[in-house]
Design a protein around this nucleic acid. Structure first.
Lengths: 208, 208
DNA sequence: CGCTAAAAAGAACGGTCATTCTTGTACAAA
DNA sequence: TTTGTACAAGAATGACCGTTCTTTTTAGCG
Protein backbone atom coordinates (compact mmCIF):
# COMPACT_ATOMS: atom_id res chain seq x y z
CA UNK A 1 0.00 0.00 0.00
CA UNK A 2 1.44 3.34 -0.99
CA UNK A 3 2.25 5.56 1.95
CA UNK A 4 0.42 8.47 0.39
CA UNK A 5 -2.86 6.55 0.33
CA UNK A 6 -2.53 5.59 3.98
CA UNK A 7 -1.68 9.15 4.90
CA UNK A 8 -4.83 10.38 3.20
CA UNK A 9 -6.88 7.75 4.97
CA UNK A 10 -5.44 8.80 8.33
CA UNK A 11 -6.35 12.41 7.67
CA UNK A 12 -9.85 11.50 6.53
CA UNK A 13 -10.45 9.48 9.68
CA UNK A 14 -8.86 12.21 11.78
CA UNK A 15 -11.08 14.85 10.25
CA UNK A 16 -14.18 12.80 10.96
CA UNK A 17 -13.02 12.19 14.50
CA UNK A 18 -12.26 15.86 15.08
CA UNK A 19 -15.71 16.74 13.83
CA UNK A 20 -17.41 14.11 15.94
CA UNK A 21 -15.44 14.43 19.16
CA UNK A 22 -13.20 17.47 18.92
CA UNK A 23 -9.54 17.96 18.14
CA UNK A 24 -8.52 17.39 21.74
CA UNK A 25 -9.84 13.83 21.53
CA UNK A 26 -7.45 13.02 18.71
CA UNK A 27 -4.90 10.46 19.91
CA UNK A 28 -2.69 8.10 17.97
CA UNK A 29 -4.74 5.23 19.30
CA UNK A 30 -8.17 6.62 18.44
CA UNK A 31 -7.16 7.49 14.90
CA UNK A 32 -5.32 4.21 14.41
CA UNK A 33 -8.33 2.20 15.52
CA UNK A 34 -10.75 3.84 13.12
CA UNK A 35 -8.21 3.70 10.30
CA UNK A 36 -7.59 -0.01 10.87
CA UNK A 37 -3.97 0.71 11.62
CA UNK A 38 -1.68 0.11 14.51
CA UNK A 39 -0.62 2.98 16.70
CA UNK A 40 2.88 2.71 15.30
CA UNK A 41 1.50 2.89 11.78
CA UNK A 42 0.04 6.31 12.44
CA UNK A 43 3.17 7.51 14.20
CA UNK A 44 5.20 6.52 11.16
CA UNK A 45 3.34 9.18 9.16
CA UNK A 46 3.04 11.84 11.87
CA UNK A 47 5.94 11.55 14.32
CA UNK A 48 4.45 14.11 16.70
CA UNK A 49 0.80 14.43 17.65
CA UNK A 50 0.93 18.11 16.85
CA UNK A 51 1.85 17.26 13.28
CA UNK A 52 -1.26 15.15 13.01
CA UNK A 53 -3.54 17.73 14.58
CA UNK A 54 -2.13 20.52 12.46
CA UNK A 55 -2.61 18.45 9.33
CA UNK A 56 -6.18 17.68 10.33
CA UNK A 57 -6.88 21.39 10.71
CA UNK A 58 -5.31 21.99 7.32
CA UNK A 59 -7.55 19.30 5.86
CA UNK A 60 -10.56 20.92 7.51
CA UNK A 61 -9.75 24.32 6.04
CA UNK A 62 -9.26 22.68 2.68
CA UNK A 63 -12.65 21.03 2.89
CA UNK A 64 -14.22 24.33 3.94
CA UNK A 65 -12.71 26.08 0.98
CA UNK A 66 -13.95 23.44 -1.44
CA UNK A 67 -17.41 23.49 0.14
CA UNK A 68 -17.96 27.21 0.69
CA UNK A 69 -15.88 29.09 -1.85
CA UNK A 70 -16.58 29.31 -5.54
CA UNK A 71 -20.12 28.04 -5.28
CA UNK A 72 -21.71 31.31 -6.38
CA UNK A 73 -20.98 31.03 -10.05
CA UNK A 74 -23.43 33.25 -11.80
CA UNK A 75 -24.34 35.34 -8.77
CA UNK A 76 -21.79 37.91 -9.79
CA UNK A 77 -20.38 39.43 -6.61
CA UNK A 78 -21.72 42.21 -4.42
CA UNK A 79 -24.23 41.72 -1.66
CA UNK A 80 -25.84 38.62 -3.23
CA UNK A 81 -22.49 36.84 -3.13
CA UNK A 82 -21.98 37.81 0.50
CA UNK A 83 -25.41 36.53 1.48
CA UNK A 84 -24.99 33.40 -0.56
CA UNK A 85 -21.66 32.72 1.11
CA UNK A 86 -23.09 33.19 4.59
CA UNK A 87 -25.91 30.77 3.89
CA UNK A 88 -23.48 28.19 2.60
CA UNK A 89 -21.01 28.77 5.43
CA UNK A 90 -23.51 28.28 8.23
CA UNK A 91 -23.85 24.54 8.58
CA UNK A 92 -21.29 23.76 5.89
CA UNK A 93 -20.05 20.68 7.76
CA UNK A 94 -23.26 18.79 7.08
CA UNK A 95 -23.07 19.60 3.41
CA UNK A 96 -19.41 18.52 3.37
CA UNK A 97 -20.32 15.15 4.84
CA UNK A 98 -18.66 15.61 8.21
CA UNK A 99 -20.34 13.65 10.98
CA UNK A 100 -20.38 16.40 13.60
CA UNK A 101 -19.59 20.02 14.16
CA UNK A 102 -17.03 22.39 12.66
CA UNK A 103 -13.58 21.26 13.81
CA UNK A 104 -12.08 24.71 13.23
CA UNK A 105 -14.55 26.67 15.31
CA UNK A 106 -14.27 24.09 18.05
CA UNK A 107 -10.47 24.15 17.89
CA UNK A 108 -10.30 27.93 18.09
CA UNK A 109 -12.01 27.81 21.47
CA UNK A 110 -10.53 24.57 22.74
CA UNK A 111 -6.96 25.70 22.14
CA UNK A 112 -7.30 29.13 23.70
CA UNK A 113 -5.05 28.20 26.56
CA UNK A 114 -2.58 25.99 24.75
CA UNK A 115 0.06 27.93 22.81
CA UNK A 116 1.81 25.96 20.11
CA UNK A 117 1.66 25.05 16.45
CA UNK A 118 -1.85 23.64 16.59
CA UNK A 119 -3.23 26.81 18.10
CA UNK A 120 -1.42 28.80 15.44
CA UNK A 121 -3.07 26.69 12.75
CA UNK A 122 -6.51 27.32 14.22
CA UNK A 123 -5.83 31.04 14.46
CA UNK A 124 -4.61 31.05 10.87
CA UNK A 125 -7.83 29.41 9.73
CA UNK A 126 -9.81 32.08 11.53
CA UNK A 127 -7.72 34.67 9.75
CA UNK A 128 -8.59 33.11 6.39
CA UNK A 129 -12.26 33.21 7.32
CA UNK A 130 -12.01 36.84 8.32
CA UNK A 131 -10.20 37.81 5.14
CA UNK A 132 -12.80 36.03 3.02
CA UNK A 133 -15.54 37.97 4.76
CA UNK A 134 -13.69 41.24 4.37
CA UNK A 135 -13.18 40.70 0.65
CA UNK A 136 -16.85 39.93 0.12
CA UNK A 137 -17.87 42.95 2.18
CA UNK A 138 -15.53 45.27 0.34
CA UNK A 139 -16.87 44.01 -2.96
CA UNK A 140 -20.43 44.72 -1.84
CA UNK A 141 -19.41 48.21 -0.82
CA UNK A 142 -17.67 48.81 -4.14
CA UNK A 143 -20.82 47.75 -5.96
CA UNK A 144 -22.83 50.26 -3.84
CA UNK A 145 -24.86 47.47 -2.27
CA UNK A 146 -23.69 48.47 1.19
CA UNK A 147 -23.22 51.91 2.69
CA UNK A 148 -19.96 53.55 1.71
CA UNK A 149 -18.96 54.24 5.31
CA UNK A 150 -19.60 50.67 6.46
CA UNK A 151 -17.10 49.64 9.13
CA UNK A 152 -15.63 46.60 7.37
CA UNK A 153 -13.78 45.14 10.33
CA UNK A 154 -16.82 45.56 12.55
CA UNK A 155 -19.16 43.89 10.08
CA UNK A 156 -16.73 41.01 9.61
CA UNK A 157 -16.59 40.65 13.39
CA UNK A 158 -20.38 40.53 13.59
CA UNK A 159 -20.71 37.95 10.84
CA UNK A 160 -17.94 35.78 12.26
CA UNK A 161 -19.74 36.13 15.57
CA UNK A 162 -22.95 34.82 14.06
CA UNK A 163 -21.08 31.83 12.71
CA UNK A 164 -19.52 31.11 16.10
CA UNK A 165 -22.83 31.62 17.88
CA UNK A 166 -24.41 29.19 15.50
CA UNK A 167 -21.65 26.69 16.22
CA UNK A 168 -22.16 26.92 19.96
CA UNK A 169 -25.92 26.99 19.69
CA UNK A 170 -26.31 24.05 17.36
CA UNK A 171 -23.48 21.96 18.69
CA UNK A 172 -22.85 22.74 22.35
CA UNK A 173 -26.42 23.67 23.25
CA UNK A 174 -28.21 21.47 20.72
CA UNK A 175 -30.72 24.13 19.74
CA UNK A 176 -32.65 22.62 16.80
CA UNK A 177 -33.57 26.16 15.74
CA UNK A 178 -29.98 27.35 15.45
CA UNK A 179 -29.97 27.50 11.65
CA UNK A 180 -33.12 29.60 11.49
CA UNK A 181 -31.93 31.97 14.21
CA UNK A 182 -28.55 32.48 12.61
CA UNK A 183 -30.13 33.17 9.24
CA UNK A 184 -32.46 35.69 10.84
CA UNK A 185 -29.49 37.42 12.42
CA UNK A 186 -27.76 37.65 9.08
CA UNK A 187 -30.84 39.17 7.49
CA UNK A 188 -31.24 41.71 10.25
CA UNK A 189 -27.65 42.86 10.21
CA UNK A 190 -27.51 43.08 6.43
CA UNK A 191 -30.75 45.01 6.36
CA UNK A 192 -29.35 47.56 8.78
CA UNK A 193 -26.51 48.54 6.45
CA UNK A 194 -27.99 48.03 3.03
CA UNK A 195 -27.63 50.99 0.74
CA UNK A 196 -31.37 50.96 0.00
CA UNK A 197 -33.37 53.67 1.84
CA UNK A 198 -30.03 55.13 2.69
CA UNK A 199 -31.50 57.88 4.84
CA UNK A 200 -32.89 55.72 7.61
CA UNK A 201 -29.99 53.33 7.56
CA UNK A 202 -27.46 56.11 7.67
CA UNK A 203 -29.21 57.72 10.59
CA UNK A 204 -29.06 54.41 12.40
CA UNK A 205 -25.38 53.83 11.71
CA UNK A 206 -24.13 57.28 12.50
CA UNK A 207 -26.50 58.15 15.31
CA UNK A 208 -24.55 57.61 18.56
CA UNK B 1 -8.19 24.58 60.21
CA UNK B 2 -11.92 24.21 59.73
CA UNK B 3 -12.86 22.10 56.75
CA UNK B 4 -15.24 24.75 55.51
CA UNK B 5 -12.46 27.30 55.18
CA UNK B 6 -10.28 24.89 53.22
CA UNK B 7 -13.18 23.98 50.99
CA UNK B 8 -13.72 27.64 50.18
CA UNK B 9 -10.03 28.08 49.48
CA UNK B 10 -10.06 25.11 47.12
CA UNK B 11 -12.99 26.57 45.21
CA UNK B 12 -11.37 29.99 45.03
CA UNK B 13 -8.18 28.51 43.63
CA UNK B 14 -10.17 26.28 41.31
CA UNK B 15 -12.15 29.22 39.99
CA UNK B 16 -8.98 31.17 39.31
CA UNK B 17 -7.45 28.17 37.60
CA UNK B 18 -10.55 27.56 35.49
CA UNK B 19 -10.48 31.19 34.43
CA UNK B 20 -6.79 31.14 33.65
CA UNK B 21 -6.47 27.73 32.01
CA UNK B 22 -9.93 26.32 31.45
CA UNK B 23 -12.03 23.80 33.31
CA UNK B 24 -10.46 20.87 31.46
CA UNK B 25 -7.10 21.74 33.02
CA UNK B 26 -8.50 21.28 36.50
CA UNK B 27 -6.88 18.27 38.14
CA UNK B 28 -6.55 17.32 41.77
CA UNK B 29 -2.86 17.97 41.52
CA UNK B 30 -3.07 21.40 39.91
CA UNK B 31 -5.61 22.67 42.40
CA UNK B 32 -3.80 21.12 45.33
CA UNK B 33 -0.54 22.75 44.35
CA UNK B 34 -1.96 26.26 44.15
CA UNK B 35 -3.95 25.78 47.33
CA UNK B 36 -0.87 24.56 49.23
CA UNK B 37 -2.52 21.24 49.84
CA UNK B 38 -1.71 17.66 49.06
CA UNK B 39 -3.62 15.83 46.40
CA UNK B 40 -5.31 13.75 49.06
CA UNK B 41 -6.37 16.88 50.87
CA UNK B 42 -8.38 18.03 47.91
CA UNK B 43 -9.85 14.59 47.32
CA UNK B 44 -11.05 14.56 50.91
CA UNK B 45 -13.35 17.49 50.08
CA UNK B 46 -14.33 16.45 46.55
CA UNK B 47 -14.19 12.66 46.20
CA UNK B 48 -14.77 12.77 42.44
CA UNK B 49 -13.24 15.24 40.03
CA UNK B 50 -16.67 15.95 38.60
CA UNK B 51 -17.81 17.14 42.03
CA UNK B 52 -14.97 19.63 42.05
CA UNK B 53 -15.60 20.85 38.52
CA UNK B 54 -19.33 21.17 39.10
CA UNK B 55 -18.73 23.12 42.29
CA UNK B 56 -16.32 25.41 40.46
CA UNK B 57 -18.97 26.12 37.84
CA UNK B 58 -21.47 26.80 40.62
CA UNK B 59 -19.02 29.21 42.19
CA UNK B 60 -18.52 30.90 38.83
CA UNK B 61 -22.25 31.38 38.35
CA UNK B 62 -22.48 32.71 41.87
CA UNK B 63 -19.75 35.23 41.19
CA UNK B 64 -21.45 36.23 37.95
CA UNK B 65 -24.71 36.82 39.74
CA UNK B 66 -23.07 38.95 42.40
CA UNK B 67 -21.13 40.91 39.77
CA UNK B 68 -23.77 41.40 37.10
CA UNK B 69 -27.18 41.29 38.74
CA UNK B 70 -28.63 43.95 40.96
CA UNK B 71 -26.13 46.61 39.99
CA UNK B 72 -28.68 48.83 38.28
CA UNK B 73 -30.27 50.25 41.38
CA UNK B 74 -31.96 53.45 40.35
CA UNK B 75 -32.05 52.69 36.66
CA UNK B 76 -35.57 51.40 37.03
CA UNK B 77 -36.01 48.63 34.50
CA UNK B 78 -36.88 48.77 30.83
CA UNK B 79 -34.38 49.23 28.06
CA UNK B 80 -31.87 51.14 30.22
CA UNK B 81 -31.62 48.16 32.55
CA UNK B 82 -31.10 45.80 29.63
CA UNK B 83 -28.34 47.96 28.19
CA UNK B 84 -26.75 48.47 31.57
CA UNK B 85 -26.76 44.73 32.16
CA UNK B 86 -25.15 43.99 28.80
CA UNK B 87 -22.37 46.49 29.45
CA UNK B 88 -21.70 44.97 32.85
CA UNK B 89 -21.94 41.41 31.55
CA UNK B 90 -19.42 41.85 28.75
CA UNK B 91 -16.04 41.60 30.41
CA UNK B 92 -17.48 40.91 33.88
CA UNK B 93 -14.63 38.55 34.77
CA UNK B 94 -12.12 41.39 34.93
CA UNK B 95 -14.41 43.36 37.20
CA UNK B 96 -14.92 40.28 39.37
CA UNK B 97 -11.17 39.88 39.81
CA UNK B 98 -10.78 36.67 37.83
CA UNK B 99 -7.36 36.31 36.22
CA UNK B 100 -8.53 35.13 32.81
CA UNK B 101 -11.61 34.51 30.75
CA UNK B 102 -15.14 33.46 31.59
CA UNK B 103 -15.03 29.87 32.85
CA UNK B 104 -18.68 29.29 32.00
CA UNK B 105 -18.50 30.34 28.37
CA UNK B 106 -15.33 28.32 27.96
CA UNK B 107 -16.89 25.30 29.65
CA UNK B 108 -19.98 25.39 27.47
CA UNK B 109 -17.81 24.91 24.40
CA UNK B 110 -15.17 22.66 25.93
CA UNK B 111 -17.72 20.17 27.23
CA UNK B 112 -19.76 19.90 24.06
CA UNK B 113 -18.64 16.35 23.48
CA UNK B 114 -18.51 15.13 27.04
CA UNK B 115 -21.92 14.23 28.48
CA UNK B 116 -22.10 14.13 32.25
CA UNK B 117 -22.85 16.22 35.31
CA UNK B 118 -20.27 18.90 34.51
CA UNK B 119 -21.74 19.47 31.07
CA UNK B 120 -25.17 19.67 32.65
CA UNK B 121 -23.95 22.33 35.05
CA UNK B 122 -22.56 24.40 32.19
CA UNK B 123 -25.77 24.05 30.24
CA UNK B 124 -27.74 25.05 33.33
CA UNK B 125 -25.65 28.20 33.68
CA UNK B 126 -26.35 29.07 30.06
CA UNK B 127 -30.02 28.59 30.79
CA UNK B 128 -29.81 31.04 33.69
CA UNK B 129 -28.11 33.55 31.43
CA UNK B 130 -30.78 33.12 28.79
CA UNK B 131 -33.60 33.50 31.30
CA UNK B 132 -32.05 36.66 32.71
CA UNK B 133 -31.88 38.13 29.22
CA UNK B 134 -35.45 37.12 28.47
CA UNK B 135 -36.75 38.75 31.64
CA UNK B 136 -34.94 42.00 30.89
CA UNK B 137 -36.18 41.95 27.30
CA UNK B 138 -39.76 41.27 28.34
CA UNK B 139 -39.59 44.11 30.82
CA UNK B 140 -38.36 46.47 28.13
CA UNK B 141 -41.21 45.39 25.89
CA UNK B 142 -43.75 45.88 28.67
CA UNK B 143 -42.43 49.38 29.21
CA UNK B 144 -42.87 50.08 25.46
CA UNK B 145 -39.14 50.63 25.03
CA UNK B 146 -38.95 47.82 22.50
CA UNK B 147 -41.34 46.93 19.70
CA UNK B 148 -44.34 44.92 20.86
CA UNK B 149 -43.77 42.17 18.33
CA UNK B 150 -40.11 41.72 19.22
CA UNK B 151 -39.09 38.07 18.95
CA UNK B 152 -37.89 37.56 22.50
CA UNK B 153 -36.12 34.24 21.96
CA UNK B 154 -34.38 35.53 18.86
CA UNK B 155 -33.16 38.69 20.58
CA UNK B 156 -31.91 36.68 23.55
CA UNK B 157 -30.07 34.41 21.09
CA UNK B 158 -28.47 37.41 19.42
CA UNK B 159 -27.36 39.00 22.69
CA UNK B 160 -26.02 35.73 24.05
CA UNK B 161 -24.23 35.39 20.74
CA UNK B 162 -22.57 38.75 21.17
CA UNK B 163 -21.37 37.67 24.60
CA UNK B 164 -19.95 34.43 23.24
CA UNK B 165 -18.37 36.22 20.28
CA UNK B 166 -16.77 38.61 22.69
CA UNK B 167 -15.46 35.70 24.71
CA UNK B 168 -13.88 34.06 21.69
CA UNK B 169 -12.63 37.32 20.27
CA UNK B 170 -11.03 38.67 23.42
CA UNK B 171 -9.83 35.39 24.81
CA UNK B 172 -9.17 32.91 22.03
CA UNK B 173 -8.20 35.43 19.37
CA UNK B 174 -6.78 38.12 21.67
CA UNK B 175 -8.41 40.98 19.82
CA UNK B 176 -7.69 44.08 21.95
CA UNK B 177 -10.71 45.75 20.36
CA UNK B 178 -13.17 43.06 21.40
CA UNK B 179 -14.89 45.19 24.04
CA UNK B 180 -15.51 48.06 21.66
CA UNK B 181 -16.76 45.80 18.90
CA UNK B 182 -19.14 43.94 21.19
CA UNK B 183 -20.52 47.20 22.54
CA UNK B 184 -21.04 48.46 19.01
CA UNK B 185 -22.94 45.28 18.15
CA UNK B 186 -25.19 45.75 21.14
CA UNK B 187 -25.94 49.32 20.14
CA UNK B 188 -26.74 48.35 16.58
CA UNK B 189 -29.05 45.52 17.48
CA UNK B 190 -30.86 47.52 20.12
CA UNK B 191 -31.28 50.43 17.73
CA UNK B 192 -32.89 48.16 15.18
CA UNK B 193 -35.75 47.21 17.49
CA UNK B 194 -36.22 50.31 19.58
CA UNK B 195 -39.77 51.55 19.74
CA UNK B 196 -38.66 55.04 18.69
CA UNK B 197 -39.41 55.91 15.04
CA UNK B 198 -41.49 52.80 15.00
CA UNK B 199 -42.30 53.06 11.32
CA UNK B 200 -38.82 52.47 9.95
CA UNK B 201 -37.95 49.90 12.56
CA UNK B 202 -41.16 48.00 12.00
CA UNK B 203 -40.58 47.96 8.29
CA UNK B 204 -37.14 46.51 8.90
CA UNK B 205 -38.31 43.78 11.27
CA UNK B 206 -41.27 42.64 9.22
CA UNK B 207 -39.80 43.17 5.79
CA UNK B 208 -38.79 39.92 4.00
C1' DC C 1 -2.39 14.47 80.14
C1' DG C 2 -4.92 10.95 77.08
C1' DC C 3 -8.87 10.13 74.04
C1' DT C 4 -11.53 10.93 69.90
C1' DA C 5 -12.68 12.44 65.44
C1' DA C 6 -11.95 15.37 61.72
C1' DA C 7 -8.58 16.96 58.37
C1' DA C 8 -4.81 16.43 55.64
C1' DA C 9 -0.73 13.82 53.89
C1' DG C 10 1.19 10.36 51.33
C1' DA C 11 1.72 5.90 49.21
C1' DA C 12 -0.07 2.79 45.83
C1' DC C 13 -2.84 0.93 41.87
C1' DG C 14 -4.58 0.88 37.30
C1' DG C 15 -5.36 3.26 33.29
C1' DT C 16 -4.29 6.26 29.27
C1' DC C 17 -1.19 8.35 26.32
C1' DA C 18 3.00 10.34 23.63
C1' DT C 19 7.13 8.90 22.33
C1' DT C 20 10.90 5.72 21.16
C1' DC C 21 12.73 1.54 19.73
C1' DT C 22 12.82 -2.94 17.67
C1' DT C 23 10.88 -6.29 14.77
C1' DG C 24 8.39 -8.04 10.77
C1' DT C 25 6.65 -7.68 5.99
C1' DA C 26 5.99 -6.50 1.20
C1' DC C 27 8.24 -5.24 -2.85
C1' DA C 28 11.72 -3.53 -5.90
C1' DA C 29 16.31 -3.94 -7.97
C1' DA C 30 20.56 -6.55 -8.44
C1' DT D 1 17.86 -15.74 -4.51
C1' DT D 2 19.79 -11.96 -2.09
C1' DT D 3 19.84 -7.24 -0.78
C1' DG D 4 17.87 -2.90 0.27
C1' DT D 5 14.06 0.04 1.37
C1' DA D 6 9.67 1.90 2.57
C1' DC D 7 5.82 0.69 5.42
C1' DA D 8 3.52 -0.95 9.24
C1' DA D 9 3.20 -3.70 13.69
C1' DG D 10 4.13 -4.17 18.31
C1' DA D 11 6.59 -3.91 22.58
C1' DA D 12 8.56 -0.87 26.04
C1' DT D 13 9.23 3.42 28.60
C1' DG D 14 8.07 7.27 31.31
C1' DA D 15 4.79 10.64 32.50
C1' DC D 16 0.34 12.13 34.22
C1' DC D 17 -3.96 11.39 36.46
C1' DG D 18 -8.28 9.60 38.99
C1' DT D 19 -9.21 6.85 42.58
C1' DT D 20 -8.52 4.18 46.80
C1' DC D 21 -6.24 3.16 50.85
C1' DT D 22 -3.47 3.83 54.98
C1' DT D 23 -1.05 6.81 57.98
C1' DT D 24 -0.08 11.04 60.26
C1' DT D 25 -1.28 15.42 62.09
C1' DT D 26 -4.33 18.63 64.27
C1' DA D 27 -7.96 20.45 67.25
C1' DG D 28 -11.27 19.94 70.79
C1' DC D 29 -12.57 17.98 75.22
C1' DG D 30 -12.66 15.07 79.47
Amino acid sequence: MSGQVTRTRILRVGLDLASAEGLCRITFGSVAGRASLSKGGVVAHFPHLDDLKRSILDAALDLWSRTCLGVDTGVGGGLPSLIRYLNVWIGWTRRAGLPGSCPIAQAIVELSFLPGPVREAAAAAESVWRQSLIMLIRNAIDKRHLLQDTDVAQLAWDLLGIYLSHHVSSHSLRDPDADRKAQFSVKRIVASIEAINEGAAHQRQGGQ
